[in-house]
Amino acid sequence: MNHDEHGANVPSFWRRPAGMALATAALIAGFYLLREHWVHVMGFWPYLLLLACPLVHLMHGHGHGGHGRHPQATGRAQDDQQ
């Protein structure tokens, strides 16, 4: 059985016409919903920013191996000491 013929050329759902139509309809509905309720959204804006700070810290804090673990180049370290 050859699996390449059955699944290699099938585009993802979002690349199909039905997926594109659904995404477009969702964007339009979101725009009008946000436009009609902008005053309510702006009332929660400071709280959303405060909520986003710890989430961003948790998501980005683990990707680089922590703070202070980057080795310094020997040429730059010698220049700083002189």
Results as ranks from 00 to 15, higher is better:
residue 36 E to W: 11
residue 57 H to F: 14
residue 38 W to K: 07
residue 46 P to L: 04
residue 50 L to F: 13
residue 38 W to P: 00
residue 69 R to M: 10
residue 5 E to G: 02
residue 36 E to Q: 11
residue 37 H to L: 08
residue 51 L to Q: 01
residue 78 Q to N: 03
residue 24 T to H: 00
residue 30 G to F: 09
residue 54 P to T: 02
residue 40 H to S: 10
residue 61 G to K: 02
residue 74 T to A: 15
residue 12 S to P: 03
residue 80 D to K: 04
residue 7 G to N: 14
residue 13 F to K: 01
residue 14 W to E: 12
residue 72 Q to E: 13
residue 57 H to M: 14
residue 12 S to Q: 15
residue 62 H to N: 11
residue 59 M to D: 08
residue 80 D to E: 09
residue 3 H to M: 14
residue 15 R to S: 15
residue 62 H to T: 09
residue 51 L to T: 08
residue 26 A to G: 07
residue 53 C to D: 02
residue 80 D to Q: 08
residue 18 A to F: 08
residue 9 N to M: 11
residue 25 A to E: 02
residue 74 T to L: 11
residue 9 N to S: 12
residue 32 Y to H: 05
residue 79 D to H: 07
residue 39 V to K: 04
residue 64 H to M: 06
residue 62 H to K: 11
residue 11 P to C: 05
residue 64 H to S: 06
residue 51 L to F: 14
residue 43 G to I: 04
residue 8 A to M: 14
residue 58 L to E: 11
residue 55 L to Q: 04
residue 26 A to P: 00
residue 46 P to A: 10
residue 25 A to R: 03
residue 77 A to F: 01
residue 40 H to R: 09
residue 14 W to D: 06
residue 74 T to Y: 01
residue 45 W to K: 01
residue 57 H to S: 12
residue 12 S to R: 06
residue 25 A to M: 13
residue 77 A to L: 15
residue 75 G to F: 03
residue 72 Q to S: 13
residue 77 A to G: 01
residue 1 M to F: 03
residue 47 Y to A: 12
residue 3 H to F: 13
residue 27 L to E: 05
residue 4 D to G: 06
residue 35 R to G: 02
residue 63 G to F: 01
residue 30 G to V: 01
residue 78 Q to L: 10
residue 46 P to N: 06
residue 63 G to C: 02
residue 46 P to I: 06
residue 66 G to Y: 08
residue 65 G to F: 04
residue 64 H to N: 08
residue 42 M to Q: 13
residue 73 A to E: 10
residue 25 A to I: 05
residue 64 H to K: 04
residue 7 G to W: 07
residue 52 A to P: 00
residue 29 A to R: 07
residue 67 H to L: 13
residue 2 N to A: 12
residue 1 M to P: 07
residue 23 A to G: 01
residue 65 G to T: 03
residue 59 M to H: 06
residue 6 H to M: 07
residue 1 M to T: 06
residue 19 G to T: 05
residue 38 W to A: 14
residue 67 H to M: 10
residue 21 A to H: 05
residue 44 F to G: 13
residue 14 W to K: 02
residue 45 W to F: 10
residue 67 H to Q: 12
residue 39 V to E: 05
residue 29 A to M: 09
residue 17 P to R: 05
residue 53 C to V: 15
residue 66 G to M: 10
residue 70 H to V: 09
residue 10 V to Y: 01
residue 57 H to T: 08
residue 62 H to W: 10
residue 10 V to H: 06
residue 40 H to N: 13
residue 81 Q to N: 03
residue 38 W to C: 03
residue 27 L to K: 02
residue 42 M to L: 15
residue 72 Q to H: 10
residue 19 G to H: 04
residue 50 L to Y: 10
residue 13 F to G: 00
residue 9 N to F: 13
residue 13 F to E: 03
residue 10 V to M: 14
residue 49 L to D: 07
residue 72 Q to F: 09
residue 79 D to S: 10
residue 44 F to A: 09
residue 49 L to Q: 12
residue 51 L to G: 15
residue 48 L to I: 12
residue 30 G to H: 00
residue 11 P to E: 00
residue 27 L to A: 14
residue 75 G to K: 00
residue 44 F to P: 00
residue 29 A to C: 08
residue 69 R to T: 11
residue 53 C to G: 11
residue 55 L to Y: 08
residue 73 A to G: 08
residue 63 G to E: 04
residue 65 G to Q: 11
residue 54 P to I: 02
residue 69 R to A: 12
residue 57 H to R: 07
residue 75 G to T: 04
residue 41 V to H: 00
residue 29 A to I: 14
residue 81 Q to P: 00
residue 3 H to Q: 06
residue 42 M to I: 08
residue 75 G to S: 08
residue 38 W to H: 05
residue 25 A to Q: 05
